[in-house]
């Protein structure tokens, strides 16, 4: 037991150290991609709260990612002197509230109903973003104008520098991942997994199934919004592509390809996805075909995703614990 614990602490320290020195080892192009992988990781992990832990398939998660991204722009644009970190938080809260409203209608229904409803609400929110041109810029998109960031003890940071954006993104993503993990370990977080395994029994024991699911949905929305805010901060530009159905399916791909059965599977999935859009698209214009084939093969033969393909010995060393999702 203590042995495992030491190993875990050691692993965490190594990973943290690696993340700190990474910018000094990578080229700027690679660093840009590391940032993208970081916020997409958070997005995919938030999605996996639904798919892996909640056991429900959503086709509308981009709605919250996009809401977060747009609110990041609004916060910095319309509130004079808005500091960066509160703006990120505001974006997350806006996305979380949106998710709570949509979730109120969706989580009562399971299976295919849930999938369709989330898709339809995604379209509705997309339509609002498209129509409300004075606010969102419609399909032209809207630019984000950065200002410097002040941190106590550190001073002013140049937010145009890729280094700053990298550290900011990685720190926020790590904190978010830690919070999600922490929540899942709390007794309340445990009920969520319980609900997934057997809804009727959970209700019988006395859990409020509706509330558990709604909390999970809202939380997934909140963290998707944080990821969206980081996306907006990195891109300095937000358009409807961050809120449309294609983005919703991309996050499904990320989470499932990486592996819904473990906490960090979606992180791997985000990296694989970026890999596809970056390198495979250079080799063939039909990269989406190969992505689809990989997705279907994994569904058929390895439904714990790529992380499930890693030979047991290696995996056991890294992360002995994994969620029950996807284990069959």
């Amino acid at each position: 037991m203590t042995h495992t614990r030491t190993k875990n602490v050691l692993t965490v320290l190594i990973v943290l150290a690696a993340l700190v020195v990474l910018p000094y080892l990578l080229t700027e192009v690679q660093l840009n991609m590391a940032i993208e992988i970081a916020f997409f990781s958070l997005f995919a992990v938030s999605y996996n709260l639904l798919l892996g832990y909640g056991g429900v398939l959503s086709f509308g998660h981009a709605a919250y990612f996009g809401t977060g991204a747009y609110f990041m722009v609004f916060a910095l644009k319309y509130v004079a002197g808005m500091p960066i970190l509160p703006a990120v938080l505001v974006s997350g809260v806006a996305a979380g509230l949106t998710a709570a409203i949509v979730g109120f209608f969706c989580v009562r229904l399971g299976g295919s109903y849930f999938a369709l409803l989330t898709l339809a609400f995604n379209q509705l929110i997309y339509a609002i973003a498209l129509k409300w041109r004075s606010l969102t810029g419609g399909d032209d998109g809207i630019g984000l104008d950065k200002h410097d960031m002040y941190l106590p003890f550190v001073g002013n940071l140049d937010t145009m520098s890729t280094f700053t954006v990298y550290y900011l993104t990685v720190i926020i993503v790590l904190i978010s991942l830690w919070l999600i993990r922490f929540f899942l370990k709390t007794p309340y977080g445990n009920t969520v997994a319980c609900v997934k395994d057997n809804e009727e029994r959970a209700a019988f024991i006395g859990y409020n199934v509706f509330r558990s699911k709604l909390v999970l949905f809202t939380m997934a929305g909140f963290f998707a919004g944080i990821a969206g805010a980081l996306f907006a901060f990195f891109e300095e530009f937000v358009s409807l592509d961050s809120i449309n159905m294609a983005m919703s399916t991309e996050v499904l791909f990320m989470a499932f390809i990486g592996g819904t059965g473990s906490f960090l599977g979606p992180v791997l999935g985000a990296a694989v996805f970026i890999y596809f859009t970056e390198w495979v698209s250079d080799i063939t214009e039909h990269w989406e075909f190969f992505l689809g084939v990989l997705f279907v093969l994994l569904i058929l033969y390895a439904n714990r995703g790529i992380i499930g393909l890693i030979p047991e010995k290696i995996k056991n060393f890294w992360s002995p614990r994994s969620a029950s999702a996807g284990e069959r």
Partner: peptide, 17 residues
């Protein structure tokens, strides 16, 4: 792929590499 985020990434790659 007509996505601004990907366009921006590819542009950065062209500029830096």
């Amino acid at each position: 792929a007509l996505k601004p985020a990907i366009a921006a990434r590819k542009a950065k790659k062209l500029i830096l590499k």
